[in-house]
Write a protein that binds this DNA or RNA. Structure first.
Length: 722
DNA sequence: GCTATCTAATTTTTT
DNA sequence: ATTAGATAGC
């Protein structure tokens, strides 16, 4: 008996030992699913499977990294298996076969910001007078949806006929033009990495043969979050050997708004009728109370595969529920609590989760006041910072001169007299001649175009020199060469005098990361590094600081902490107000809380605030409806919460809170009101204005106003004429 | 063409 | 409050 299998329960063992054919594993939270995948990889390798015949895909770099290192710890050969994210696997295959699609294998990868800019270029030409920001926003949503659904431009027409409500006016044309523009730029957005690979697999028999032959054993983690495109890719890859194991938990599906279809896992056996099915329902992570609360909560969902998570662990501490007067006090309470428990839970053991990023500010302030170290995950992305984007854009343009989005970004950075007018002239010339922007620059320089000719020549020569210089130097020098050639520090100092040091530090960090990368991958070229930074976003600086972890509930998936706080359990925040009216969105909000709760190994606190300032207005939200769905037996109310919650009568929670006094009884948030001067509006919240209570009303025609409730009539029109 | 000022928009966002 | 992006004025 292999020692790998020690300490596995019989169900886990069955999952690991599964050899041929499709298998779907429903793995509840904390049931050891990463362990199963890694152990299975090790087991396969120990039993004659070649490491490079194994493919394991996940969604996040973090998860992939974890999986890779754990598998390697079991068998060192696992480092030759392909254990990575969907996007980076696809990017790798696309580089291999780019030419089959008419792409150069130095193609750029566009992040959301780049792709918005590309879309803007397309729309600007199509609707010169249109409201660009609105159009871009509308089309972005449509494009990301249609790409995750695996629908190609040539199929979009039919799709628009079948589902007209899903397609904005002109959407089909924009989709086609956008894809053409990206092809012209030799660039792919995140969606294209998947979609273009799917296109290859569908149309190109040679590629399909090679890739489906290559991987004997395929495993996919977090399968509930796959979209249709990903499902179809996996289907093609696994078609030959049919050794496909998918692992997931429909209760943890929290990305349906991004095209994930949990039916991929729930109905897996419709595509694979011979699929075996294993359910892992024993939780090894959390205490009894935490598991109990989470299961009871998620059981309120109507759409889910039936299952019950259980544990043999002791009940442990009760789940703490606390209510505070406002968001600041809530944060203060959490910080104080962390401080008082510091002998039991080290700062690294603790996480605070919240629904929206904007909630992090008050938490940060409170933690700072208590001198508690913390790390915020995923707020200001390192690679989205202006100075980093500038550097990366230059390097991209050097690797791929067709990359027009990078071209447009850097042509006047640092400022060199090539503003909107000049760019317009270059673009128009390019359009006229049917050539790329860089070629247009070359010809305009050659033609000795008046005014902009010399400036363009400077830019062109600079770029050419940079290209030579960087290509002939070791990779780790690239950023340094750029900085000097551009005199970029001077530019930063002039343009951002007070943020200068920060920005230079960031660039230093980029350069350090680059050196590190070059050291680890001695063979790597600029293109490899560019791909890595496009797909991996980690801020090495913040990652090493440690302390209490702050993140959104979405980011928390897949992680675990001994001690967890979830802040802002209020109707309007969790569930979020945009998701409260639609039943299936509401269920997703519930799953979000479920995910948060099940991250806690030992102790959990749920907090909410009566009032909360968001942006500039004060909102009054009732406690989350989800709090009522957690049975009282698992909960301990803090003193403060007790008087307000009345735990013995949970159904009165709302009533007591919202209708606390007569004024709010008739004018609660969300109520339609009518004002004699401003006309119809909706109450968004309340504000205490020097002791006087005012309603924050969003008027149909006059925007937001703070109004004394006595001036408002209930309903959408007044009985009297205004 | 560049800079300063104004305005609108802020759910979540693995890649 | 904050930020990015568009517009108006130098």
């Amino acid at each position: 008996m292999s020692e790998l299998l020690l300490n596995l329960n019989s169900v886990q063992k069955a999952a690991v030992l599964h050899r041929e054919g499709p298998l779907v594993i429903f793995a509840g939270a904390g049931s050891g699913k990463t362990r199963i995948i890694t152990t299975r990889i090790a087991y396969l390798i120990n039993h004659g499977v070649l490491p490079w015949e194994i493919l394991a895909v996940t969604f996040t770099n973090k998860a992939a990294e974890e999986m890779r290192s754990r598998a390697e710890a079991l068998v060192p050969e696992a480092k030759r298996s392909l254990i990575t994210t969907f996007h980076s696997a696809c990017a790798r295959w696309l580089r291999e076969f780019a030419s089959e699609l008419g792409f150069d294998n130095h193609f750029s990868i566009y992040d959301d910001q780049d792709s918005s800019r590309a879309l803007k270029q397309v729309l600007k030409e199509l609707h010169p007078k249109g409201d660009l920001p609105t159009l871009v926003a509308e089309m972005r949503g449509f494009l990301s949806y249609i790409k995750t659904a695996g629908i190609f431009p040539h199929e979009a027409e039919q799709f628009a006929l079948d589902y007209p409500q899903m397609v904005p006016t002109g959407g089909v044309t924009v989709y086609r033009l956008y894809q053409e523009y990206l092809a012209q730029c030799n660039a792919m957005d995140f969606g294209d990495l998947l979609l273009n690979l799917l296109l290859l697999l569908r149309q190109n028999q040679r590629v399909r043969e090679i890739l489906s032959q290559r991987y004997q054993y395929i495993m996919v983690d977090e399968f509930q979050d796959t979209n249709r495109t990903q499902f179809e890719i996996i289907h093609h890859l696994a078609n030959r050997h049919r050794n496909l194991v998918v692992v997931g938990d429909d209760d943890q599906s929290i990305y349906s708004w991004r095209g994930a279809t949990p039916s991929n896992i729930i109905d897996f056996d419709q595509t694979y009728p011979d699929a075996k099915r294993i359910a892992l329902e024993q939780n090894y992570r959390c205490t009894g109370n935490i598991v109990g609360a989470a299961s009871k909560l998620v059981a309120y969902n109507t759409k889910r595969a039936p299952k019950t998570l259980f544990t043999e662990a002791a009940a442990g501490d009760a789940i703490e529920v606390h209510l505070e007067v406002d968001g600041e006090m809530e944060a203060y309470w959490i910080a104080e609590r962390i401080q008082s428990e510091r002998r039991t839970f080290g700062f690294d053991d603790i996480a605070i989760f919240y629904r929206t990023n904007s909630q992090s500010r008050s938490l940060e302030e409170a933690l700072r006041r208590f001198k508690i170290p913390y790390t915020i995950y995923g707020s200001l992305e390192f690679y989205e910072r202006l100075e980093i984007k500038d550097m990366v854009a230059y390097l991209r343009l050097i690797a791929n001169e067709s990359d027009e989005i990078s071209f447009l970004r850097v042509i006047n950075v640092p400022t060199r007299g090539l503003g909107d007018k000049a760019i317009e002239q270059v673009q128009q010339f390019a359009r006229q001649q049917g050539i790329g922007l860089m070629e247009a620059v070359r010809r305009l320089v050659q033609a000795g175009t008046p005014k902009i000719g010399p400036k363009l020549k400077y830019f062109h020569d600079l770029l050419a020199a940079l290209k030579d210089d960087i290509r002939s130097s070791p990779l780790q020098e690239a950023v340094k060469i750029l900085l000097e050639a551009l005199e970029y520090p001077d530019y930063l100092k002039k343009k951002f005098p007070d943020q200068y040091t920060d920005k230079i530090d960031n660039i230093q960090e980029l350069a350090a990361g680059m050196s590190e990368y070059a050291k680890r991958n001695p063979e790597a070229h600029l293109e490899d590094w560019l791909q890595a930074v496009s797909l991996v976003r980690e801020d090495t600086e913040t990652a090493s600081i440690g302390g209490v972890s702050l993140m959104t509930l979405h980011m928390a998936k897949g992680l675990e902490f001994r001690r967890v706080y979830i802040a802002g359990l209020e109707d309007g925040l969790l569930p979020h107000k945009n998701s409260m009216d639609d039943p299936s969105s509401l269920e997703e909000e519930r799953r979000l809380l479920y995910v948060g709760i099940t991250r806690a190994k030992e102790k959990l606190s749920l907090t909410c605030a009566r009032r909360r300032r968001t942006y500039n207005t004060e909102m009054v939200n009732p406690p989350s409806r989800f709090l009522r769905e957690v049975p009282q037996e698992f909960i301990e109310f803090t003193l403060k919460a007790k008087e307000l919650f009345e735990p013995q009568a949970p159904s009165s929670l709302h009533a007591r809170y919202v209708y606390e006094d007569d004024e709010e009884a008739t004018l609660e948030a969300g109520a339609k009101v009518y004002h004699p001067t401003y006309g119809p509006g909706i109450i968004e919240g309340f504000d205490d204005h020097f002791g006087q209570r005012k309603a924050i009303v969003r008027f149909r025609d006059f925007g937001y106003r703070k109004i004394r409730p006595s001036q408002l009539h209930a309903g959408s029109s007044s009985g009297r004429s205004p």
